[in-house]
């Protein structure tokens, strides 16, 4: 079989994200919310052109990694910015790093946005 020409290859980017919510959310709900947000904002065709895919999600640490085409990264990030609720609970998806390799994205940690705001409210 003839090798796939390099210039036709998609340039991929990996986006690390964390889910900020008061209670940990199940993987199924998070993945569904992320997919719905992206298809809702960029559309089915846009998501297809972006080669959008949720690579992994860790429900314990509430962090995950997405894949998107290099030219559609901004649109995917903007779509994630519109998520306000996951499984009926107030939640926010925050993106952290964009990288061409998966290795660099493993170090990302959850910020604890809701906890920080609650602490300051008590003070």
């Amino acid at each position: 079989m003839k090798p796939f020409p390099a210039y036709l290859k998609e340039r991929e980017r990996y986006i690390s994200f964390t889910v900020e919510s008061r209670n940990p959310l199940p993987k199924k709900e998070v993945v569904a919310a992320v997919c719905n947000a992206v298809t809702g904002y960029v559309g089915t065709l846009g998501a297809a052109a972006a080669g959008f895919r949720v690579i992994e999600y860790d429900p314990e640490e509430q962090k995950g990694i997405l894949r998107a085409g290099a030219e559609k990264v901004e649109e995917v990030i903007a779509a994630l910015a519109l998520i306000r609720r996951i499984a009926g609970e107030p939640a926010s998806v925050l993106t952290h790093d964009v990288s061409g390799t998966l290795k660099r994205l493993k170090k990302v940690k959850k910020i604890g946005l809701f906890e920080t705001i609650d602490q300051h409210k008590e003070e």
Binding site: E20, V73, E74, E75, I77, A78, L80, A81, R84, R85, P90, A91, S92, L94, T95, H96, L113, F114, I117
Partner: peptide
């Protein structure tokens, strides 16, 4: 509310779109 807060990178991406 807190769910509406986003980081600068996300606001930039929104502006880009």
């Amino acid at each position: 509310g807190p769910a509406g807060l986003k980081n600068p990178r996300m606001l930039e991406a929104f502006g880009h779109t």
